[in-house]
Amino acid sequence: SADYSSLTVVQLKDLLTKRNLSVGGLKNELVQRLIKDDEESKGE
């Protein structure tokens, strides 16, 4: 998976916004949300 932890919070929020995901929470939560979304989209 992508190394989201190396991105800035601003970059993470931009990715979340593009996916229509919540941008609330700490950086670690944003990273986990993106990883979870990646895993769910692979399952389709």
Score class of each variant (00 low, 15 high):
24 G>M: 10
28 N>E: 15
28 N>C: 11
32 Q>P: 01
17 T>C: 12
24 G>S: 15
43 G>F: 12
23 V>R: 08
15 L>Y: 05
10 V>D: 15
22 S>F: 06
41 S>W: 11
29 E>S: 05
43 G>D: 12
38 D>I: 06
3 D>K: 09
31 V>P: 02
20 N>I: 04
8 T>A: 06
35 I>D: 04
38 D>F: 05
12 L>W: 00
10 V>I: 12
7 L>T: 02
38 D>Y: 05
17 T>R: 15
41 S>C: 10
31 V>I: 15
13 K>Y: 03
3 D>R: 08
39 E>F: 11
20 N>Y: 05
34 L>I: 05
29 E>D: 13
2 A>S: 12
13 K>C: 10
41 S>L: 11
14 D>W: 07
11 Q>N: 04
35 I>V: 10
34 L>W: 00
11 Q>T: 06
3 D>V: 06
36 K>V: 08
18 K>A: 10
4 Y>R: 01
21 L>R: 04
40 E>N: 13
35 I>Y: 06
8 T>N: 09
20 N>M: 07
6 S>P: 04
43 G>I: 13
25 G>D: 03
21 L>Q: 04
13 K>P: 00
36 K>S: 10
15 L>Q: 06
21 L>W: 00
14 D>G: 07
25 G>L: 01
44 E>Y: 11
5 S>C: 15
14 D>F: 06
39 E>N: 11
9 V>R: 04
29 E>H: 06
15 L>S: 03
34 L>E: 01
5 S>W: 11
36 K>A: 12
10 V>A: 15
25 G>H: 02
25 G>V: 01
40 E>H: 12
38 D>R: 03
5 S>F: 08
4 Y>Q: 02
5 S>R: 08
19 R>A: 03
10 V>R: 10
41 S>E: 10
40 E>D: 13
22 S>H: 11
42 K>S: 10
16 L>K: 00
11 Q>A: 08
33 R>A: 06
26 L>D: 15
16 L>W: 00
13 K>D: 03
1 S>M: 14
10 V>F: 05
24 G>K: 15
32 Q>R: 10
28 N>T: 11
20 N>W: 03
12 L>A: 00
30 L>M: 11
14 D>K: 09
35 I>N: 06
7 L>N: 04
2 A>C: 15
8 T>W: 00
6 S>H: 13
18 K>D: 08
18 K>W: 03
42 K>Q: 11
5 S>V: 09
1 S>K: 15
13 K>L: 09
22 S>R: 08
16 L>G: 01
15 L>K: 05
22 S>G: 09
29 E>F: 00
1 S>L: 14
7 L>M: 15
39 E>G: 08
24 G>Y: 06
25 G>R: 00
21 L>P: 01
22 S>W: 05
37 D>M: 05
17 T>A: 15
22 S>N: 10
37 D>L: 05
3 D>I: 07
23 V>S: 10
13 K>A: 06
15 L>H: 04
27 K>F: 10
30 L>K: 01
21 L>C: 05
28 N>G: 11
28 N>R: 09
25 G>S: 02
40 E>I: 11
3 D>A: 06
8 T>V: 03
11 Q>C: 09
22 S>M: 07
41 S>T: 12
43 G>E: 11
12 L>T: 00
29 E>K: 05
30 L>R: 00
30 L>W: 05
24 G>T: 15
10 V>H: 12
21 L>K: 06
21 L>G: 02
9 V>K: 07
18 K>V: 07
1 S>C: 14
24 G>H: 15
42 K>R: 13
21 L>D: 02
41 S>D: 09
32 Q>S: 10
11 Q>R: 04
26 L>R: 11
33 R>E: 02
19 R>Q: 03
27 K>S: 05
41 S>V: 10
1 S>I: 13
41 S>H: 15
29 E>A: 07
25 G>Q: 02
24 G>Q: 15
32 Q>W: 04
41 S>G: 11
7 L>I: 04
13 K>H: 07
30 L>Q: 03
2 A>F: 14
18 K>T: 08
29 E>T: 07
6 S>D: 14
16 L>N: 01
29 E>P: 00
31 V>Q: 05
6 S>G: 12
6 S>V: 07
13 K>M: 10
27 K>W: 09
40 E>R: 14
1 S>G: 12
4 Y>P: 02
2 A>Y: 14
27 K>Y: 08
12 L>D: 01
33 R>K: 05
42 K>T: 10
5 S>K: 09
28 N>A: 14
3 D>P: 07
1 S>E: 13
15 L>G: 00
44 E>C: 15
20 N>A: 07
4 Y>V: 02
16 L>H: 01
42 K>E: 10
18 K>S: 09
20 N>V: 03
34 L>T: 02
34 L>H: 00
37 D>Q: 06
16 L>C: 13
7 L>S: 03
20 N>Q: 09
40 E>W: 10
9 V>Y: 04
35 I>S: 06
1 S>V: 12
18 K>I: 09
33 R>P: 03
37 D>H: 13
20 N>L: 06
18 K>Q: 10
30 L>C: 04
39 E>V: 10
37 D>S: 12
37 D>N: 12
10 V>W: 05
12 L>S: 00
2 A>Q: 13
16 L>A: 05
29 E>W: 00
4 Y>D: 02
16 L>S: 01
26 L>S: 15
27 K>C: 06
11 Q>L: 06
35 I>G: 03
41 S>Q: 13
40 E>F: 10
18 K>F: 05
36 K>L: 10
30 L>N: 01
39 E>K: 10
22 S>K: 10
2 A>K: 14
38 D>K: 03
33 R>C: 03
23 V>T: 15
1 S>Q: 13
34 L>C: 02
1 S>H: 14
30 L>F: 02
6 S>Q: 14
27 K>M: 07
19 R>M: 02
43 G>A: 13
41 S>M: 13
38 D>H: 04
17 T>Q: 14
42 K>A: 12
4 Y>M: 03
17 T>N: 12
6 S>N: 14
33 R>H: 02
38 D>G: 04
6 S>T: 09
18 K>N: 08
42 K>V: 10
4 Y>H: 03
14 D>I: 09
22 S>L: 07
23 V>H: 07
8 T>C: 07
9 V>S: 06
16 L>F: 00
36 K>M: 11
10 V>E: 15
16 L>Q: 01
